[in-house]
Amino acid sequence: MSENKSGSGYVEAEFTRDSKYISDRITSDGSGRWPVERGRYRLVVARACPWANRSVIVRRLLGLEPVISMGMTGPTHDERSWTFDLDPGGRDPVLGYERLQEAFFARDPDYSRGITVPAMVDVPSGAVVTNDFPQMTLDFSTQWTAHHRAGAPELYPEHLRDEMDEVMERVYTEVNNGVYRCGFSGSQRAYDKAYDRLFGTLDWLSERLESQRFLMGGQITEADVRLFTTLARFDTVYHGHFKCNRQKLAEMPVLWAYARDLFQTPGFGDTIDFPQIKEHYYVVHADINPTQIIPKGPDTSGWLLPHFREQLGERPFGDGTPPGPPPAGEQVPADHGPGGIGHRL
């Protein structure tokens, strides 16, 4: 959190995200240190994290599962790192690590910034290649094309990129990061400002989506992936835990129908683990929730209600096709989905 002085001299403690990531890229032209190569890299994620959830969805929509393996940490972490506590023996079976921190130290023994997911790790060296999550998913679309599945959708169409980039920037600033600016505000003034910006943008998104099925028109793009991961967590954690409580998502008709439409699309809802999401936020953010009590609600069965958005268009994947079922070992447990258990026991 940083303190920014306003023009009036009032100091408002506004949350500022550390966005200095390892910015290396894995590219297809062979010009860099990290070439696209089947089986060489491991995507490390946490199901609880919205930024990591993006990469899980895009990897799945494009059919990159056989090409980029995936390791999953548990839903909580301490001040040091995410840990592989879901794996037998508490170690990632490919990297052999107990903590994601080990991959960052393999890259730089003096690494002192945040240990974040998603992270792409070079399996031969065990070193992190990048944790630059916004670029990572765009590169899945543009650099890994030789390995896309047959029927993979075009998630970053070249003719839409200028407008998409503007939409995604606003979604990131005001919604994806906006909920965090509400939750971690250090003053009433900072919170009020963040709250107004968040809901002003949600109103703008509702208007945009009232007459078109997806953010960029009639088919799914990366812009929808980026908005979805925040909407999927809105009622479960952001509404209460982060004080984003003007309305629940379920009380915003257009956005609620849009979010259900995506949730019921293969590759989206089947990546959402509600108990892990709740455990992460309510346990890790002890400064906001010092008791670390995990709420039993809300009821998530509404995610499966009809959305009727197909009336706006019938081609969510454009000329492509939906992905198949998640690979073995990557399925969300059935009781962690809509209407499942309240929290992990």
Rank of each mutant, 00 (worst) to 15 (best):
S2A: 13
S2Q: 13
E3N: 11
Y10F: 06
Y10D: 09
V11R: 03
E12H: 09
S19H: 05
S19G: 04
K20S: 14
D24P: 13
I26C: 08
S31I: 07
S31Q: 11
P35R: 07
P35Q: 07
R38I: 09
R38K: 15
G39K: 01
R42W: 06
V45T: 14
A46P: 06
A48L: 02
C49R: 00
P50T: 04
P50W: 04
R59H: 10
G63A: 01
E65L: 08
P66A: 04
I68S: 14
I68A: 15
S69V: 06
M70N: 04
M70D: 04
P75C: 02
T76G: 05
T76I: 06
T76R: 04
H77V: 05
R80H: 10
D87F: 03
D87M: 00
P88V: 07
R91W: 05
R91M: 04
V94Q: 01
Y97V: 00
E102I: 05
E102A: 13
R113S: 10
P118W: 00
A119S: 11
M120D: 00
M120S: 01
S125T: 12
S125A: 07
N131R: 12
P134D: 06
M136K: 10
M136R: 12
F140E: 14
W144F: 08
A150R: 15
G151V: 06
A152D: 04
P153I: 05
Y156W: 12
P157Y: 02
R161D: 05
M164A: 15
V167T: 11
E169S: 15
R170Y: 05
R170Q: 13
V171L: 13
V171Y: 11
T173V: 14
R181W: 09
Q188T: 07
Y191D: 09
Y195W: 11
L198E: 03
L198V: 05
F199H: 14
T201C: 09
L202M: 14
W204N: 14
R208G: 10
R208S: 11
L209Y: 06
E210D: 09
L215D: 08
Q219P: 11
A223V: 06
D224Y: 03
D224M: 01
L227H: 10
L227G: 09
A232S: 01
A232M: 00
D235E: 08
T236M: 13
Y238G: 14
H241I: 07
C244F: 12
N245F: 10
P253S: 00
Y258L: 15
R260L: 13
F263T: 02
F268Y: 11
D270M: 12
D273Y: 03
P275L: 01
I277Q: 12
K278N: 12
H280A: 13
V284M: 06
H285F: 14
A286K: 15
D287N: 13
N289A: 08
N289M: 08
P290K: 03
T291L: 05
Q292S: 09
I293T: 13
I294H: 00
K296C: 09
P298L: 05
L305N: 14
L305Q: 14
R309H: 07
Q311D: 10
L312A: 02
L312Y: 03
G313R: 08
E314L: 10
P316A: 04
F317K: 03
F317W: 13
G318F: 08
G318S: 08
D319L: 01
T321D: 13
P325A: 07
G329H: 04
Q331E: 15
Q331R: 15
P338E: 03
G339L: 04
G339W: 06
G342L: 09
H343C: 05
H343K: 11
H343L: 07
R344E: 08
L345F: 15
